[in-house]
Amino acid sequence: MTHRTEPVSYEALYTAHYGEVLRLCRLLLANHHDAEEVAQEVFLKVFQKYQNVNQTQLVMWRPWLARVSVNACRDRRRSGWWKWWRGASEEYREANFPISSRTPEQALLSRETQGRIWRAFQELSARQQEVFALRYVDEWSTEEVAEMLGITTGSVKRYLFRAVRHLRRVLGDRR
């Protein structure tokens, strides 16, 4: 996905970015149904903004989407904290995610190790999750992450270092 600044149609925006927004929401919420709902809310905001934006105005949609998605996930976590306590184990079993092509190393990873990485990620604080997801999953630069989250680059590095140290412990146990 590239930084597109030229005017594009709403359908093109949806097709190009929906998967990325859903993945980010799924990472931050750890619940597929909540992630889908929030992704839909995000694209409702995209539609509203799209109608208000002058077609000659260039919009950096991808960073805007990432910022709106992070904020929407944060709002969802705050408003629906009780939902985190309800059972959701069946939700993922019913979910039908497309299996993307895996690297050879990924293919070698056991299901158990993947589960441990996911659990370790869920144990991170909300801010550490946001920073790690934006920096290493969505591959934004440190400066861009800092700008999106409204924090300094030094804070981004601190959150990243702590998150990486925690996540590497899981892999360290495996080795």
């Binding site: 619940n31 993922y92 299901r111 999953v137």
Partner: peptide
């Protein structure tokens, strides 16, 4: 791993 779908047993809260 985080780009892939999560294993089912990891998402129950």
């Amino acid at each position: 791993v985080l780009r892939e779908e999560p294993p089912p047993e990891t998402v129950s809260h």
